[in-house]
């Protein structure tokens, strides 16, 4: 019971056989060897598996690979050259926005979305917008500070 799908993964066109029950994260991790996408709950709550589908953040644990036929999927590995992600990586490191690093790929994808979609967010809005990603190490302070730092820097550069 497999289906053939063709999709773009980190800019690369891929055709693969998938079992319909294989969720996108397992497909990426086990079949495409892209292990940067992490599984923290497999029921859509913790956000560790968050990646981009057609540029929008999505849960890859409750999205099935078969449903991504024709889509463009971007994982944390595909954000190496992304300028917003680069700013965030620098800010996460400067503000100690990560400890064990397990939630971090999902955090970066969600944070990138906040920076792009809510450029005027205050700290409270940052927290609300990021609330779909759980971290057990940092207490979130460093992550909020990192996003704040990127938003502030962008305003300074724009102004």
């Amino acid at each position: 019971m497999t289906k053939t799908i063709t999709l773009t993964i980190n800019g690369r066109r891929v055709t693969a056989q998938v079992s319909p029950r294989t969720h996108l994260a397992d497909f990426l991790r086990e079949q495409q060897l892209l292990t940067g996408t992490h599984l923290g709950c497999e029921h859509g709550v913790c956000g560790a598996c968050t990646l981009l589908i057609d540029g929008q953040p999505a849960r890859s644990c409750i999205t099935y690979a078969v449903a991504c036929d024709g889509r463009a999927v971007t994982t944390v590995e595909g954000l190496d050259a992304d300028p917003t992600a680069a700013e965030l990586r620098d800010a996460f490191s400067a503000e100690h926005g990560l400890q064990c690093g397990f939630c971090t790929p999902g955090m970066l994808v969600a944070a990138r979305d906040v920076v792009l979609r809510k450029p005027d967010a205050d700290d409270r809005q940052i927290r609300v917008e990021m609330s779909g990603n759980l971290c057990r190490c940092t207490g979130y302070v460093g992550i909020v500070n990192a996003i704040r730092r990127v938003l502030d820097a962008r305003k300074t550069n724009a102004g």
């Binding site: 940067g36 996408t37 992490h38 944390v76 996460f92 490191s93 990560l98 690093g101």
Partner: peptide
Amino acid sequence: RRKEDERLLRGRGRFVG
């Protein structure tokens, strides 16, 4: 700044799974 950050921020950590 932590030496660990670079690999973890790029999804290049290596966890058991």
